[in-house]
Simulated scan of single mutants.
Amino acid sequence: MTRVLVVDDEPQLLRALEINLRAYGYACVTAVDGETALAAVAEHHPDIVVLDLGLPDLDGVEVIRRIRGWSQVHVIVLSARHGSQDKVDALDAGADDYVTKPFGLDELLARLRAAARRAGSEVSAPVITTGHFTLDAGARRAVREGGEVRLTPTEWKIVDRLIARPGQLVSQQQLLLDVWGPAYAKDVQYLRVYLAQLRKKLEPDPAHPRYFVTESGMGYRFDP
């Protein structure tokens, strides 16, 4: 089920969209301001964000910029601002689509379907096989030396980020943002603890990691 976060400070519109999206089979989360929206993106990991620009605390363009600091979720702007510069600013900040109010429900649903198709085509759940273990990201299954290894949901989130870019450095801050959200952007101890757990479960010699490698002071990389 596609999860949609709708962000708007108009209670009637927000409620109407929530009811209609659920009726059409979407899982819907709502937020009434920018800070709540940012927290919801970090907590719920929506597939699509439908965002009004005129929010009471943060301008919608700033919300898009902040989301893009740690997430590639599809953002559809839904705004009463019709000016071309408003559209340019939103798209330059990282929005994927722009719909002006008033709008038809059919049009919004069509754009949601298109965004869901793009999101689906971009998602790849790889199967990684090394000399010591296999990781099936889609099935959430890890096998080491013929035995299944249980990874926690948080450990899988870290694995997902690292195996998506094999051999490439992923910074500490990026991992913290992706896995825990912006409130934890400086809590590097979280990463140390969870990487130590991952290594104990998967590495042949956790004290000298072969696969989940630390780049001191910078981040981590996965070497298949």
Rank of each mutant, 00 (worst) to 15 (best):
Ala119Met: 02
Thr36Tyr: 05
Arg221Phe: 13
Pro166His: 08
His208Ile: 00
Ile128Ser: 04
Asp33Ile: 06
Gly94Lys: 04
Val41Gly: 03
His45Tyr: 10
Gly217Ala: 07
Pro166Gly: 06
Gln85Ser: 12
Ile64Pro: 04
Leu5Trp: 10
Val75Asn: 04
Ser121Phe: 03
Ala40Val: 02
Gly120Ala: 14
Val50Lys: 03
Ala183Pro: 05
Arg192Pro: 00
Ala114Thr: 14
Pro126Ala: 05
Glu107Pro: 01
Leu109Gln: 09
Val149Lys: 05
Gln72Leu: 10
Arg140Thr: 11
Glu145Lys: 15
Tyr184His: 15
Tyr194Phe: 12
Arg65His: 14
Val213Ile: 15
Ala40Gly: 00
Val127Ala: 12
Gly219Thr: 10
Pro102Trp: 07
Val99Ala: 06
Gln174Leu: 09
Ala196Asn: 11
Ala16Asn: 05
Arg210Asp: 06
Arg144Ala: 12
Gly25Leu: 03
Val179Lys: 04
Val179Trp: 12
His208Asp: 00
Leu14Ile: 01
Glu35Trp: 10
Val61Gln: 14
Gly217Tyr: 10
Ser79Leu: 06
Pro153Met: 06
Phe103Asp: 13
Leu176Glu: 01
Ser121Lys: 14
Pro102Gln: 12
Arg199Asn: 09
Gly60Lys: 12
Leu13Ala: 09
Val63Cys: 14
Arg210Leu: 14
Arg210His: 05
Phe212Pro: 07
Asp89His: 15
Asp178Ala: 15
Val149Thr: 07
Thr154Asn: 08
Tyr26Lys: 00
Ala139Gly: 09
Ser71Ile: 08
Gly219Glu: 03
Glu35Arg: 13
Val127Met: 08
Asp86Asn: 11
Glu215Leu: 06
Pro209Arg: 08
Ala116Leu: 03
Arg3Leu: 14
Ala95Met: 07
Asp187Val: 09
Gly131Trp: 05
Met1Asp: 10
Ala142Ile: 09
Pro126Arg: 02
Phe103Ser: 12
Asp205Lys: 11
Ala185Gly: 05
Ala183Cys: 06
Thr129Leu: 07
Arg81Thr: 04
Leu109Asn: 02
Val4Gly: 06
Leu105Cys: 00
Pro56Val: 06
Lys101Ser: 13
Arg210Gln: 14
Tyr220Ala: 00
Arg3Gln: 12
Leu176Ala: 08
Ser84Ala: 15
Val6Asn: 02
Leu175Thr: 04
Asp9Ser: 08
Thr214Val: 14
Arg199Gln: 08
Val29Leu: 03
Glu203Leu: 12
Glu62Trp: 04
Pro46Asp: 00
Ala119Ser: 12
Pro166Glu: 07
Asp52Gln: 08
Arg140His: 14
Gln173Lys: 12
Leu112Tyr: 00
Arg144Glu: 01
Glu43Trp: 03
Asp92Val: 09
Gln173Pro: 02
Gly219Asp: 05
Asp96Ser: 13
His74Thr: 09
Pro126Phe: 11
Ala164Thr: 07
Ala16Cys: 01
Gln189Ile: 07
